[in-house]
Simulated assay, not measured.
Amino acid sequence: MCQGLAELPIACLERAKEFKTRLGILLHKSELAHGIGAAGKLQLGSRRRDSSREVLEWRESFDQLLKSKNGVTAFHTFLKTEFSEENLDFWLACEDFKKTRSKTKLASKANRIFEEFVQSEAPREAKTRTLMEKDSYPRFLKSASYQDMTKQATSRSINKRLHT
C-alpha cells in the first residue's frame, strides 16, 4: 500500500482507513443478513403484545429506546446498516463498566474500552452518546424498518382493543 519514503504518513493512514471501511462492509454482510428479514426490514421480537407497546415507546425518547433490550437490538441492527454500531457498542461497554464492582474487572474493562474505542487509531474509535441521540436516533425513527415496526405495533394495538 504505502511504498517509498516520499509518501506522507497521512496518506498512508487515509488509505488504511479506506481499506478498513471496505473490509468492514464485507464483514457486515453476513451479520446483516442474520439481523434483517427476507424483505430487508427489521423484525419484531417474539413477545408480540409487549413488543407492540415497546416499539411505540421508543419514539418517546432516546432513553426509552435504550431501556428496551429489543430497542437496543433493533437500533444496533440499524446502526450496522450505517456502519456506525461502534457508537452504541462503546456506550454499552461504558454502561457495563459503571455497573462493575470488582476492582480487578474494572481495570480490565477500562483497559479494553480504551484500547478498542478511545485511544488514537483504535480499531472501533467511537463518538459519544450525544452523537447517537442527535444523529443516528432521529434517522432510526424515520427509517423504513422502524416505520414498519410501528405500523405492526399500532395494528396489533387496534386489533387488541377491538377484541376486548
Rank of each mutant, 00 (worst) to 15 (best):
L56F: 00
E18L: 13
R161H: 01
D50I: 02
L32A: 04
S120G: 08
A93G: 04
D89G: 05
Q64F: 15
L32P: 01
I10F: 08
T130P: 01
K109R: 13
C2M: 02
K151N: 13
F19N: 00
R101S: 12
L26F: 13
I10A: 09
H76G: 02
F75C: 08
R15G: 00
L141D: 07
S51N: 10
D135T: 14
A39D: 15
E54M: 11
G24L: 03
V72Y: 05
S108M: 05
I25Y: 11
H76E: 13
L8H: 15
T73I: 09
E133W: 00
W91V: 11
E14K: 05
L32H: 01
C12H: 10
T164Y: 12
T73F: 09
M132P: 08
K109N: 10
K109F: 03
L42M: 07
I113K: 03
R112H: 09
R161F: 04
H28W: 03
C94R: 10
L32V: 02
D148N: 13
H28E: 12
L5T: 04
I158W: 14
S52V: 01
N111Y: 01
E54S: 08
L65N: 02
S46F: 11
D89I: 04
G4E: 09
L131A: 05
V72I: 15
L66A: 11
A122K: 07
W91N: 00
K69H: 07
A38P: 04
G4Q: 06
F75P: 07
E95L: 06
K142Q: 14
R22L: 12
H34D: 15
Q119P: 00
S51R: 01
I113W: 02
A110L: 06
L27C: 03
A39K: 15
S102L: 07
F75W: 09
T100P: 01
A33T: 14
L88D: 03
E115V: 13
L66M: 15
K160I: 04
R156T: 07
E82Y: 05
P138F: 00
T164I: 05
L141Q: 10
